[in-house]
């Protein structure tokens, strides 16, 4: 019962945030980069969340920031999943040196701290939306590879796949009828967890000044921009941070439910 409330709450929260991000240009009262109020204007008639140090409307900037964060998060996570799953299936089927090479590469990738690697890569390549998404996708693809490789690799791991093999089924049947349907729940759950860790990751990068570049700002960048206001006793920097936390909380909630729902098989 409690878990059901948590899931429904998470779903509502998640769809509200995705909608807000999609509709940011419509919902935002003023363009995000326009200086419309006095610097550090307090919340009130001049914007629900007040203004930042340059007099820009905070609410508009948070809505657009959410848009940036979610676009990068979804793009990077989807790309990561595609890279990880396809490489896992390819190495499972091709085996041999390809498998060993890819496996070793992912081992190394997983053994190095991701934020440090991202800092180095972005320092070298420079920061743009594309490099951000690709860097994050490559770094995160290792988790999908790790989840998919054992299942895809040993096609006869389960007896029912062995039965299909004994029958002489084609690869396509084995993959899409026997193996894939059983992987979907765990991949979905992994995707959910991936979304939350990607959000935290891009936010940290932007917070460090290595993400989206000014004047545009995603949620992490907004925290960085407004950090000074905090010492003046203003809570504005915490609003974008709270948005990040709420997003992660809701996807984690859904992923947890998926894991527990599909791991228990009702016995009669």
């Amino acid at each position: 019962m409690l878990s059901r409330i948590a899931v429904i709450g998470s779903l509502c929260l998640l769809s509200a945030m995705v909608l807000a991000a999609l509709l940011a240009p419509v919902l935002a009262p003023v363009p995000p980069n326009e200086m419309v109020y006095p610097a550090y204007a307090a919340p009130g008639p001049g914007g629900v969340l007040g203004a930042d140090g340059l007099g820009r409307d905070m609410l508009s900037r948070v809505l657009h920031g959410m848009r940036y964060t979610l676009i990068i998060t979804f793009a990077a996570t989807t790309l990561a999943g595609a890279i990880g799953v396809s490489l896992a299936i390819a190495s499972g089927l091709l085996k041999g040196w390809f498998d060993i090479l890819v496996g070793r590469a992912f081992d190394i990738l997983m053994s190095i701290p991701h934020i440090i690697l991202a800092l180095i890569v972005l320092a070298i390549l420079g920061v743009s939306m594309t490099t951000l998404v690709f860097t994050m996708a490559v770094l995160q693809s290792s988790t999908y590879y790790r989840v998919t490789r054992p299942i895809a690799g040993d096609l006869s791991a389960m007896d029912y796949v062995e039965v299909a093999r004994l029958r002489g089924e084609r690869l396509g049947w084995n993959l899409f009828r026997e193996i894939f349907p059983n992987m979907v729940p765990s991949l979905l759950a992994q995707y959910g967890l991936g979304l939350s860790s990607a959000t935290l990751f891009i936010s940290s990068l932007s917070f460090l000044g290595i993400g989206i570049q000014p004047p545009a700002a995603d949620l992490g960048g907004l925290v960085r921009e407004n950090a000074l206001a905090l010492s003046a006793g203003r809570f504005t920097p915490l609003v974008p941070a709270a948005c990040i936390a709420l997003f992660c909380l809701s996807v984690n909630g859904i992923a947890d439910w998926l894991v527990s729902h599909f791991s228990e098989r009702p016995e009669s």
Partner: peptide, 26 residues
């Protein structure tokens, strides 16, 4: 089994010890 003919694969059938693992849950 991959080298066996269609007929040969049909004529020999194998039943596993644990039916839980031998039936695709989906």
């Amino acid at each position: 089994v991959e080298q066996r003919s269609f007929e040969q694969r049909r004529l020999v059938q194998y039943i596993h010890q644990l039916p839980d693992l031998a039936l695709n849950p989906r």
